[in-house]
Lab assay of single mutants.
Amino acid sequence: HNLTITQGKLFFHYNPKLCLSEIHKMEEVSGTKGRQERNDIALKTNGDQASCENELLKFSYIRTSFDKILLRWEPYWPPDFRDLLGFMLFYKEAPYQNVTEFDGQDACGSNSWTVVDIDPPLRSNDPKSQNHPGWLMRGLKPWTQYAIFVKTLVTFSDERRTYGAKSDIIYVQTDATNPSVPLDPISVSNSSSQIILKWKPPSDPNGNITHYLVFWERQAEDSELFELDYCLKGLKLPSRTWSPPFESEDSQKHNQSEYEDSAGECCSCPKTDSQILKELEESSFRKTFEDYLHNVVFVPRKTSSGTGAEDPRPSRKRRSLGDVGNVTVAVPTVAAFPNTSSTSVPTSPEEHRPFEKVVNKESLVISGLRHFTGYRIELQACNQDTPEERCSVAAYVSARTMPEAKADDIVGPVTHEIFENNVVHLMWQEPKEPNGLIVLYEVSYRRYGDEELHLCVSRKHFALERGCRLRGLSPGNYSVRIRATSLAGNGSWTEPTYFYVTDYLDVPSNIA
């Protein structure tokens, strides 16, 4: 807008934040220059609390790290170098490059900038070799853009010569660093050979998330399962459950009422301010606690030095998902009996873990797994792929695949051998790939016309006998059925096997 004052003059007093240069501009645009008398524009009460600059400061050096910015700028000295009290560095987070010096300023003089007072450097006698002032900004957020400017702080001049310097606002972004852990990993099994893994992005990506790394490792069953005799009275049979499938998407929606109208769909109840505040506090606490764990609990591995020492970490090797089922080394339970199943799973520490690289999504279907087997899954978020990966501390989750139908069934015939004193040795093959492992066998036998009897055969007993022995049988026709019990439950009964026990007292003698 054009402003013209045809008559009258300007009068400025007691404006401590208004620089004289701005008042002189007002004289020019209003056409009143030359009308004012000496005392109409006070030299001592206008701009006496402001830094009124008329020179431009330029930054000469900028260096960044993930949490620091090192700045240096060209030296500046007023005509009387004693008038320079120091520099004021202003900075704040700036997602967009549209910041002005006066953003967030209120009537009390406060604003949204963080201000650092910096002492002037030592003055050199040689004007050509003056030290460049600077400042190291610490405690910054990774991968965050900051708006920065600097200006001088000078003393009051009796001659009211307006001098000083100020830089333009520059924008500097800190470097990326390792992201925080992925949030809320959930693993479920939808079949006997697959596990579905879902997660949420890290709360602090500290860069642009480029991919996720998912490692999985087959877990050995508890050692007590191999040692305890679950045929003993009072000892509860062990059981394991597989990871249940995901709930429906509708039930997972946030901010939804727990109660549904019987007449149909209901609208979600909005969260109160107290609920939102509580969630923010919980989120802040979780982030602080995660940072504490990362800094205190997890110790970084030592990389190899120039002395030739090897990095103890196993090298990563990509495998196809079809090879995942046989990740671990199978060892027989008892070496003397080769027909026992290889369900003991000690994992070799030198073995390469299978892994998958996930790009542009937060889910993965891990296939080719062994049925009813526990897996430990390790999830890392990465925001750099080359020249070397920059990934987060791992988040861990466990899951067990679903049982395989008929995996616990005894394959092959049940054979028998009759000894003296009416002892019958029953023999059968253990299931080759049971659900988890076989903890015991149930032997059901009966003599024709009598009630059915049951015998429990422990895992250890089966390994020693290759089956079991029935003792003290009365003469007669017998039928026997056997079924295995694994961590997933009972298998199917075998087809009945028949044998006849004679009275050993009636056996004919070869003595003449």
Rank of each mutant, 00 (worst) to 15 (best):
S203E: 10
D204N: 04
P205M: 05
G207D: 03
H211S: 14
Y212F: 13
V214F: 14
V214L: 12
W216C: 04
E217H: 04
E217I: 02
E217K: 05
R218K: 15
Q219D: 09
Q219H: 13
E221W: 02
S223M: 10
S223P: 13
E224P: 10
E224W: 04
L225H: 08
E227P: 10
E227D: 10
D229L: 12
D229I: 13
L232V: 05
K236I: 08
K236N: 13
L237A: 14
P238C: 03
S239M: 03
R240F: 13
S243Y: 04
P244A: 08
P244R: 08
P245H: 11
P245V: 11
P245M: 15
F246I: 07
F246L: 13
E247D: 06
E247S: 09
S251V: 12
S251A: 05
Q252I: 07
Q252W: 09
Q252A: 11
Q252Y: 03
H254K: 13
N255I: 14
E258L: 05
Y259N: 11
A263F: 08
E265S: 09
C266K: 08
C267S: 09
S268M: 12
P270Y: 09
P270R: 06
P270F: 15
K271E: 13
K271M: 15
T272F: 14
T272W: 08
D273P: 14
S274A: 15
Q275I: 13
I276P: 10
L277T: 02
K278P: 13
L280H: 13
S283N: 04
S284F: 04
S284N: 14
F285V: 12
F285G: 03
R286P: 09
K287I: 04
T288H: 12
E290Q: 06
D291F: 06
Y292I: 07
Y292C: 01
H294E: 11
V296F: 11
F298V: 05
F298E: 14
R301E: 09
T303C: 11
T303K: 06
S305F: 10
S305K: 08
S305G: 06
G308A: 11
G308F: 02
R313I: 09
R313K: 15
R313G: 03
P314S: 14
S315D: 14
R316Y: 02
R318T: 09
S320T: 11
L321T: 10
G322L: 11
G322T: 08
D323W: 12
G325P: 12
V327L: 10
N339D: 12
N339I: 08
T340Q: 05
T340D: 12
S341R: 08
S341A: 11
S344Q: 04
S344F: 07
P346L: 07
T347Y: 12
P349V: 03
E351Q: 04
R353Q: 08
F355E: 10
K357A: 15
K357V: 15
V359G: 12
N360E: 10
E362R: 10
V365A: 06
V365L: 08
I366N: 01
H371L: 06
G374F: 07
G374R: 02
I377G: 07
I377A: 15
E378W: 04
L379D: 00
A381K: 03
Q384T: 08
Q384L: 04
T386H: 05
T386R: 13
T386V: 15
T386I: 11
E389P: 09
E389T: 10
S392E: 01
A394L: 07
A395L: 09
A395Y: 06
Y396F: 00
S398E: 04
P403L: 11
E404V: 10
E404H: 08
E404D: 12
E404K: 11
K406T: 06
A407G: 02
D408Y: 01
D409A: 05
D409S: 06
V411I: 05
H416W: 10
H416I: 10
E417N: 06
F419W: 15
N422F: 10
V423A: 14
H425I: 13
M427P: 02
E430F: 04
K432T: 06
P434C: 08
G436W: 02
L437P: 04
V439H: 07
Y441N: 01
E442M: 12
R447M: 04
G449D: 06
G449R: 11
D450S: 04
L455E: 13
L455A: 09
L455M: 12
L455S: 08
L455C: 12
C456M: 02
V457T: 13
V457W: 10
S458E: 09
S458L: 12
S458Y: 14
H461Y: 14
F462S: 05
A463L: 12
E465I: 09
E465M: 08
E465P: 02
R466A: 07
R466T: 07
G467A: 07
G467D: 01
P475L: 05
G476K: 00
G476A: 02
G476C: 00
N477W: 08
Y478A: 00
S479D: 02
V480H: 00
V480M: 10
R481Y: 11
I482G: 01
A484I: 02
T485C: 14
L487N: 13
L487C: 05
A488Y: 10
S492Y: 06
W493V: 01
T494M: 01
T497L: 07
Y498D: 05
V501C: 08
T502H: 12
D503G: 03
P508L: 09
P508S: 05
